[in-house]
Design a protein around this nucleic acid. Structure first.
Length: 640
RNA sequence: GCUGUUGUAGCUCAGGGGUAGAGCAACUGAUUCGUAAUCAGUAGGUCGGAGGUUCAAAUCCUCUCAACAGCACCA
């Protein structure tokens, strides 16, 4: 019986009988056989030992394929587990999947791993790589496999297998003395795994549940080529250089200290940046029909009970008391806005009624969740609430999506992902209400013509939400904006309006934010621009430097004129060499640098350079002002 | 919150039972200079906090606070 193998280039090779992927590779060339890591038979990824029984299309997978790198990572996870079992025989293995850029493996260990353990394990991995052990696939029935792993003392593995249907055949992979349950495929031998590095150890809960015991998770990275791994590590270092906590310190933007965990001290420059963002958003409120409001920070507990926060959110709320009354510091702005809505009798003619606030909120986040300015306990939202009728929801949501895209573009972000988060387990409101709310958001997204992902069970307790995630210049995504349809809270807090037919109705409330938390958004801006803010945001837009004492009066005159026109200009008259001053201001990322020497003073002009060192030439004061204005007007230079 | 790691001068970091260190920044003086570091000098620390062991603790032990990484959380 002969069979035909079709290769990716369309050519067909005939074989006398069943062949393995490895044999097909060898038939093509000895070189290919040497580098083959796996195969793709009729679109399915398999081991090189896989036997092809009938006509098929076959691709040989090498380290040049994305699939090949995946296989390398997966096999390196096994290599890690193998090494751990050799170095620490009393450790139990659990699972070890491939993740972005690498893999991890969770172990149950009698004592936690430290950095020295990592080094020892990595060394053993290199040894096993040198042994070039063949990786052999075996098949077992489920019950047989459970018994097999129990017998080896691998309780976790046995537990995983027990949850697989009884009639299924399981594949196991053996390399030397090490054997692990795995779907595969794997590289043909451990000698193929040359480029890897263990990155860190951390605790991780068994089956991802914080009620379970904690395992030791070892993270690693693995690549086809050494250069790829080096490039990856360089990329990590680059990201580290952009870390907002580091840049915040370098540029003197803010600080945090032990006395106020998760709360930020904004320094003058950081606050300048903040104010630019806030004033910009205030314009957005004004231009798009929002009334800016301001509500109390502290409200009586009973109001939070009524709104549902006390039942659903109290573990995250800071509380206080006075004269035997209990209060809570607001974690959200919505109940406050409903109180404003409730003053007086509302008519359907007033809807949609939009309130916006730069709402200062406090949430008692778990200590382990805190992260610089990105995840804090005290933060400010650009929080708006739209009171409207059901018929108005879709239009409001659609308008919001358009607005949000424009705002993000002004900050330099154009790559946005959309997600619809549906009803969570813990919630208020009837299922019928949730049906309605989820449908409304779904329709608005569809009408906006954007693709979106559904996040099942991740909505807020009072309603479903659309999440807007933006991608920064190094490819990371951040959730910022949101819009949520709430059919419950207005009713709970007694909001109503008089409709056309003179009956009283409960309005729908849309919760919405564009930037989300200003703290977090500014953190994202810092990392996205690596501190080199566009002119409109830069805390110091321009610095004027003299070359020697003789030009001090003229330099002072120039900076005064710029400041009078609203330019955030600084002056540096220190008795230092011009190169020294330029270096300092360049490191401080000041966008425009004005140098004044005798020549400029004589001609009543200024010499301008930018922070990257580009010479913008000599110009008059008016010319400089025009340059600044044009730069500010351009914002982040992106148009939608 | 959980596991691990870390906390020393304004910043970056060294020192690991025996007198607290470096570079940069700061301050003082000299230098008046043309596009990313001029020279010299001075000052600066309860070694995160509280207990303990010791003749002696930044160093060892206990507790605690905070930060960092991951997990869980992100309503």
């Amino acid at each position: 019986m002969s069979l035909n193998i079709t290769l990716p280039d369309g050519s067909v090779r005939a074989f006398d009988g069943p062949v393995t992927v490895a044999e097909v590779a060898a038939n093509i060339s000895a070189g290919l056989a040497r580098v083959a890591l796996a195969g793709k038979v009729d679109g399915k990824l398999v081991d090189t030992s896989f036997r092809i029984e009938q006509d098929a299309s076959v691709a040989i997978i090498t380290s040049h394929d994305a699939d090949g790198v995946e296989v390398i990572r997966h096999s390196t996870a096994h290599l890690l587990a193998h090494a751990v079992k050799e170095v620490y025989p009393d450790v139990q293995v659990t699972i070890g999947p491939v993740i972005e850029n690498g893999f991890y493996y969770d172990f149950a260990t009698p004592r936690p791993f430290g950095p020295e353990d990592l080094a020892a394990i990595e060394k053993r991995m290199a040894e096993i790589n040198k042994r070039d052990l063949p990786v052999i696939r075996e098949v077992m029935g489920r019950d047989e496999a459970v018994a097999f792993f129990k017998n080896m003392g691998e309780a976790y593995k046995a537990e995983i297998i027990s949850s697989i249907p009884a009639n299924e055949q399981l594949s196991l992979y053996r390399q030397g003395d090490f054997i692990d349950l795995c779907r595969g495929p794997h590289v043909p031998s451990t000698g193929k795994l040359k480029v890897f590095k263990l990155m860190r150890v951390a605790g991780a809960y068994w089956r991802g549940d914080s009620k379970n015991e904690m395992l030791q998770r070892v993270y690693g990275t693995a690549w086809a080529k050494k250069e790829d791994q080096e490039a990856y590590i360089t990329r990590l270092e680059e990201a580290e250089k952009r870390d907002h906590r580091k840049i915040g310190k370098q540029l003197d933007l803010f600080h945090l200290q032990d006395d106020a965990p998760g709360m930020i001290f904004w320094h003058p420059k950081g606050w300048s940046l903040w104010q630019e963002v806030e004033q910009y958003m205030r314009q957005v409120y004004r231009k798009h029909g929002y009334h800016e409001v301001r509500c109390p920070q502290i409200l009586d507990k009973s109001l939070w009970q009524k709104s549902g926060h006390w039942d659903n959110f109290s573990k995250n709320m800071f509380t206080t008391e006075s004269e035997a009354r209990d209060f809570a510091i607001k974690p959200m702005n919505c109940p406050g806005h409903v109180q404003i809505f409730n003053q007086g009798v509302r008519s359907y003619r007033e809807l949609p009624l939009r309130y916006g606030e730069f709402g200062s909120c406090h949430r008692n986040e778990p200590s382990g969740a805190l992260h610089g300015v990105m995840r804090v306990r005290g933060f400010t939202q650009d929080d708006g609430h739209i009171f409207c009728t059901e018929d108005q929801i879709q239009g409001e949501v659609s308008d919001f999506i358009v607005l949000l895209k424009r705002v993000y573009a002004d900050f330099g972000f154009t790559d946005i992902q959309y997600k619809l988060a549906t009803r969570p387990e813990q919630r208020v409101g009837s299922d019928a209400t949730w049906d309605k709310a989820e449908q409304a958001l779904d329709q608005a997204l569809t009408a906006a013509g954007v693709e979106f992902e559904v996040l099942v069970g991740e909505g807020a307790f009072y309603g479903p939400k659309i999440e807007f995630h933006l991608r920064d210049c190094i490819g990371r995504t951040w959730q910022c904006g949101t819009i949520q349809a709430d059919f419950s809270m207005p009713g709970r807090l007694d909001a109503e309006y008089v409709d056309e037919d003179n009956t009283r109705k409960v309005p729908v409330m849309l919760h919405r934010a564009i930037l989300g938390s200003l703290e977090r958004f500014i953190g994202i801006l810092i990392e996205n621009f690596a501190g080199a803010f566009p002119l409109w945001l830069a805390p110091t837009q321009l610095v004027v430097m003299n070359i020697s004492e003789a030009q001090i009066p003229y330099a002072q005159q120039v900076v005064d004129a710029l400041r009078a026109e609203g330019v955030r200009a600084e002056i540096d008259l220190r008795n230092e060499k011009i190169g020294y001053k330029i270096r300092e201001h360049s490191m401080q990322k000041v966008p425009l640098q004005v140098v004044i020497g005798d020549k400029e003073m004589a001609a009543q002009v200024v010499a301008v350079r930018d922070r990257s060192g580009q010479d913008l030439g000599q110009m008059s004061l008016d010319g400089l002002l025009a340059l600044v204005r044009a730069g500010v007007a351009e914002r982040s230079g992106v148009s939608v």
